[in-house]
Nucleic acid binder design. Structure first.
Lengths: 375, 375
DNA sequence: CCTCTTGCCGAAACCGGTTTCGGTGCGGAA
DNA sequence: TTCCGCACCGAAACCGGTTTCGGCAAGAGG
């Protein structure tokens, strides 16, 4: 006769506790605990027996119970900033996937919080620390001078940067070498025949912005072009800002035939503005962005850009942070990788000289001002 | 003389513990605990004193310590599926922002994990439950027959759906009424003059897919058009699938002058295919999607679609889940909202009749088959 | 042969809460 | 006056681990 599952009352097997393991071996839970935690005053033979029995019973220490004594919860913390700027938003899922799969491989968990402002972020991190919800933090979107770093240093809480910062003392990090990407982009444009290559930087204060600007400059000098502030803009990481800066650069005496942008959203703004001026992007004007946002693949022409593998970044960061929490030296916990160039239609050989471009832009803006005299 | 901060050794004030509160009031920690947890055998005057002193000392129970006895960690769990299908990916950040801000308002936290397959997801949820890392779950992307629901029901773990399911028994949920959106879309297209309105459904098995299809049918009948299987496709939630289905629908004897899609990615595929056939989207063929993905704003013409407020969804879901965990009846925990129509260029009055469209498509595909004979 | 290490493990306290159980003081009824 | 019941709180066990301290036995050294 078959025994039916008792529908509403199915009891799952209770967890094995440390005392179960101890009892099964005729030891005390103190011994089991020390055996599993690598204490040296336990003989290797006993340690092996304990390990084996624990595996057999499927015993895993309950992290909450450990946390109450040790203060550590085997949990990685991350506070996402979800303010007005929408940079990196589409990659959050992949990034978290990387973090959480590396974390769960070590039986850690990921505690996620969000904040809108910087103060909010600091307060939120403070709460997570105070409540012992996170043993350490992943800090994305690092700034040149980052308040989060100051705070965590002061409290001696482990952390790892996605990015770098001005003073890397005691900082573990993983970063994509945006400077190298920018050098490569300049070389690429130069190779296509461009001799006036402009640049629009990203958000002020962010470290990524600084290194990408530096990369642009390095690239310009490497190919033997003069650095001309008239075709260099900055502080633009939105479509609107990109449009505004595009106007400025294109109004220069010797306008750029190619514009390199620190972010894709800025680059998309440049494209939009260029088209509004009657310029064919990827012909009259070339544009290269950075980030690999999905929108770029759908603009016309598709945006040439640098793709970042957010999942891999998450994997690395989680591993680094766990090692950091376990006490490794931050100087040994620094890794970098490269972005992948996506050569798409927005970057091509120049079809106009800078002088012709200047004429075209003048006509286009001139006509507009005729329609709206005196503004 | 100023006392300098001792740079490396800054000790933050230790947390107030329950015994501190008890001692300050001359009570035992048992009394304090019961007072704060609403036990009735504590006089109101004592309860007030305890509350006041706890606030004064900044005392908050440590959730880990509570968890060890109560089994509840004041943590919401969510497992994101990050497989090949890239639906909803861009909204994850907003969604999590909603969840986490509602959670932290009640002093709960959000534990995030990811999975690639369905088995992986069930295993991951099982681990979170077993380790008591999550007291309940938010289940996004619900299916008509959802294994996660079966599992959580069996284990009596609270959960709340983002979406609905075939058997809503014991289910709390928040959902966007996709059926209403589809009705509205059909009405809108009909109002523009379309008389042949096709439809392409979303992922098989997902509940959203079922309700949107139903909405299309309701709309078609409401405006008095016949339901014609020849211009209805399904199972398409990617660009490629959208292109494939577009081919099929446009090859019908009486092709649609407008195609409504259950997802934006599918709709973008339709647009791409239509353009490849020489059709002007938003003229020769109208297209409406659903989801509000950012790519839609950058395609040409921009995609008409329905925007979902993921942050608000997260807020509602977190609140519902917390109430569910606290024991409220699931039938009382059901909320719905509407998507917002974004009327953009891809949907306009028809510029061709269905018959003309048929001719055009035949010529376009005909020329192609001339170039590649016998195939 | 006796002491002194050293290796190895048990006993018990502890972490910060929750929950069970029992006891006290008081008012009202007998 | 005595007994009973109720309102209210304290004492102690408990949750599942970790860590301190000390003790025992075996081997080394004198």
């Amino acid at each position: 006769m078959l025994v039916r599952d008792s529908e509403p009352e199915e009891r799952r097997a209770p967890r094995a506790r440390i005392s179960d393991v101890a009892q099964a071996l005729g030891l005390t839970k103190a011994t089991v605990s020390r055996a599993l935690n690598g204490y040296t005053d336990i003989s290797e033979s006993t340690r092996a027996r304990v390990r084996h029995k624990a595996a057999e019973l499927g015993y895993t220490p309950l992290s909450h119970a450990q946390a109450i004594r040790t203060g550590r919860a085997r949990s990685l913390g991350i506070v996402l900033q979800v303010g007005d700027q929408d940079g990196q938003r589409p990659f959050v899922a992949d990034f978290l996937a990387g973090l959480s799969s590396a974390a769960s491989a070590e039986n850690w968990t990921l505690t996620v919080a969000t904040a809108t402002t910087e103060e909010d972020m600091l307060a939120t991190m403070g709460r997570l620390i105070d409540e012992r919800k996170a043993d350490g933090f992943v800090l994305p979107r690092t700034k040149v001078a980052d308040e989060r770093i100051r705070m965590l240093r002061r409290l001696s809480i482990p952390f790892v940067l996605f990015g770098r910062t001005a003073d890397p003392e005691s900082c573990a990090y993983f970063d994509i070498l945006g400077e190298d990407a920018m050098v490569l982009a300049v070389r690429h444009l130069h190779g296509l025949g461009h001799r006036r290559i402009g640049y629009i930087g990203g958000g002020d204060g962010f470290y990524y912005s600084a290194v990408r600007s530096a990369g642009y400059r390095t690239g310009i000098e490497a190919v033997g072009l003069p650095f001309d502030p008239a075709i260099v803009g900055g502080g633009a990481y939105t479509v609107d800002a990109g449009m505004r800066e595009a106007d400025r650069l294109l109004a220069a005496d010797e306008p750029p035939t190619a514009i390199l942008c620190a972010t894709d959203m800025c680059a998309l703004g440049v494209c939009r503005r260029a088209m509004a001026l009657g310029l064919r992007v990827g012909g009259d004007l070339s544009v290269i962005g950075y980030d690999g946002v999905p929108e770029g693949a759908w603009s016309t022409p598709p945006l040439a850009t640098f793709e970042v593998d957010s999942r891999v970044a998450g994997l690395h960061l989680a591993n680094l942070l766990i090692r950091r929490i376990r006490g490794e030296n931050p100087a040994d916990l620094r890794e970098t990788a490269h972005a992948r160039f996506l050569d798409r239609g927005s970057a091509a050989r120049p079809m106009m000289s800078s002088a012709e471009l200047r004429e075209h832009v003048a006509r286009a803006t001139g006509r507009r001002s005729e329609r709206r005299p005196d503004r």
